[in-house]
C-alpha cells in the first residue's frame, strides 16, 4: 500500500480541539454501567491486562511468581480469564517464557533503552534482537522524545521502522511517552508516525514518567487509530499504561474504546492495559460482584 512506509502528511490531519477532547471524555465517563454488563467488563479488562514488573531490582523469582499469577489470577474464583501478557525487561524474557510454557500468555519485553530511549540506534536495535532471540512475543519500544520534540519526525519514523524490521513477525508496541510530549497535537503526530512506520500497537507511557496514561491522551490516540483504519484497512492496537489503578477507570477506558473504535477492538489482540496493580483491583471487584461483600487486599496475592 503506497501510503504506508512513508511519513504521513500532517496537512491531512484534523487539528486537535483540546476542549472538545476533554468534553467528550467527561461525557463518556458519565455512562452508567449496569450490573449485568459490569461483570463482563471486569472479566474483559482482566483478560486485557499486561502484568508488568519493570524494576531495577527484579529477580527471576519475582518474574516466576508474576507468571504464576498471570495464569491463575485468583484460584478461588472459577471461570476467570488469564491475563494477556507478562511484561519484563529483556534479560528476564527467558525466565518468563519458561514459566509460561503451555499457556497462551505472551511475553512482552521492553527494549530500545527503555525508559529513556537515549542510546545509539545500533545498540537499541541490538537489544531488540536480543529480546526476540530470547523468545519475546511482543516488543515494547520507546521513541526518542528528544528528537521528536526537536521536530525531527524523520528520525522518529526511521527508528520505529528499523525496530519493526528487527522484530520480524514479533508484535511491536511503540511507547510514545505522552507525559513528555506536552500537547495532544504532538500525541496525534507521534501516533501517526508510529503507525505509518509499522507499529502493531501504540502505547501511551513507560510508567516511569508522570502523568502516565490519561483518558484525553488515550482518546486522541484511539482517533488516530480510527483514521488510520479508514485509510488503510489495518487495525492497530492500543495500550494505555501506567496510572490505571482501579476497575472503575478501566471500565471507563473500555467505554472510550467501544465508542471510538467499536466492538472489534474490545479484545486482547487489539487493546491492552499496562498496569501492575489494576489486576488485583479487578479481582477484588469480581469477588465483590459475586459475594456482595467488599473485599480487602489482605486476601489477594501481591504478584
Amino acid at each position: 500500500m503506497e501510503v504506508l512506509n512513508k511519513i504521513p502528511d500532517f496537512r491531512d490531519t484534523v487539528p486537535i480541539d483540546t476542549v472538545g477532547v476533554l468534553e467528550r471524555v467527561s461525557r463518556l465517563n458519565k455512562r452508567s454501567i449496569k450490573k449485568e454488563s459490569k461483570m463482563d467488563a471486569l472479566k474483559m479488562a482482566l483478560s486485557m491486562c499486561d502484568l508488568t514488573t519493570l524494576e531495577g531490582m527484579d529477580t527471576p523469582g519475582k518474574v516466576r511468581q508474576l507468571c504464576y499469577k498471570a495464569q491463575h489470577p485468583h484460584e478461588s474464583i472459577p471461570d476467570i480469564p488469564s491475563v494477556a501478557a507478562v511484561c519484563v525487561y529483556p534479560n528476564l524474557v527467558r525466565t518468563a517464557k519458561e514459566s509460561l510454557k503451555g499457556s497462551n500468555i505472551n511475553v512482552a519485553a521492553v527494549a530500545t533503552y527503555f525508559p529513556s530511549g537515549n542510546g545509539t540506534l545500533e545498540s537499541r536495535i541490538e537489544e531488540v534482537k536480543y529480546a526476540v532471540n530470547e523468545g519475546a512475543d511482543e516488543i515494547d519500544m520507546v521513541i526518542s522524545r528528544g528528537a521528536f520534540l526537536r521536530g525531527e519526525y524523520n528520525f522518529t519514523f526511521d527508528e520505529v521502522a528499523a525496530t519493526k524490521e528487527a522484530c520480524g513477525d514479533v508484535h511491536l508496541k511503540v511507547i510514545l511517552e505522552t507525559g513528555e510530549l506536552e500537547t495532544l497535537e504532538n500525541v496525534r503526530k507521534a501516533s501517526d508516525i508510529s503507525m505509518y512506520a509499522g507499529a502493531d500497537f501504540i502505547k501511551t507511557s513507560t510508567g516511569k514518567v508522570s502523568p502516565a496514561a490519561t483518558q484525553p491522551v488515550t482518546l486522541v490516540m484511539l482517533e488516530a487509530i480510527r483514521d488510520f483504519y479508514y485509510k488503510t484497512g489495518i487495525k492497530i492496537g492500543m495500550k494505555p499504561a501506567g496510572g490505571i489503578r482501579d476497575s472503575k477507570t478501566a471500565i471507563q477506558y473500555l467505554v472510550l474504546v467501544k465508542e471510538t473504535l467499536g466492538i472489534d477492538w474490545l479484545n486482547p489482540d487489539l487493546f491492552r492495559f499496562g498496569a501492575s496493580s489494576l489486576a488485583n483491583d479487578l479481582l477484588m471487584q469480581i469477588v465483590k460482584q459475586q459475594t456482595g461483600v467488599y473485599q480487602s487486599a489482605d486476601y489477594f496475592s501481591k504478584d
Binding site: G292, V293, Y294, Q295, S296, A297, D298, Y299
Partner: peptide, 8 residues
C-alpha cells in the same frame, strides 16, 4: 450490613 461485612 456493609460496615460489618467489608473484608478490610
Amino acid at each position: 450490613s456493609h460496615m460489618s461485612s467489608h473484608m478490610d
